[in-house]
Every structure is written in structure tokens, then in C-alpha cells.
Amino acid sequence: MQIKKNIAVSDSGFVFDPTSGESYTLNTVGVEIINLLKAGLHEDEIKHKILEEYEVSASAYDKSFIDFVAMLKNYELVEYAD
């Protein structure tokens, strides 16, 4: 799974999808995860980084990550390599 290439993410957490014309805002953790996804990191690597940086349990992170990815899918911001 990766973030579509043409998606632009600004430091302020503003996301613009040039395909659909929709815009989105992210919170801090959201920006961080989306940037790591864009950088091509694997899910496990991202989890590792976030757990290291933030005060959060693995299970709580997993739940929030599933929800976050569901939203990215819902907004059609991700694509899957064949």
C-alpha cells in the first residue's frame, strides 16, 4: 500500500488530491504517518518509529492505524502495487 504519488502534503498538515480536487487536513500524528508512507516505509517500520517516539501502546496504535488507513482508503488517497 502506498500514498498516491501526486498527493501533496504540506508541513501544516494540508493535503491536496489533484485527481479529485478534494483537500484534507491532518493532525500531527496523521502528518507524520502519511509522510512515512510517502517515503515508502513499510507498515511495521512506521509502527516501530511511532512507538519509539510517542507514548502509546502497540495495541492502541494498531487500532488507530487501522482506522486511519480505512479513512485514507475511503478518501481514495492510497493505491496498491500489483
Binding site: N27, V29, E32, Y54, E55, A60, S64
Partner: peptide
């Protein structure tokens, strides 16, 4: 010290509706 975690959130910018 580790940073406070908040669930990652992405929210569509609603045009013509209330926002944060």
C-alpha cells in the same frame, strides 16, 4: 520523554460548512 499520542486523523475540508 515520549510525546503524547493522539489517534491520527484525516478530515476532509468541507467547503461551505463549518470547520474546526
Amino acid at each position: 520523554e515520549k510525546k503524547k499520542f493522539e489517534r491520527p486523523v484525516i478530515k476532509k475540508v468541507q467547503t461551505g460548512m463549518t470547520n474546526k
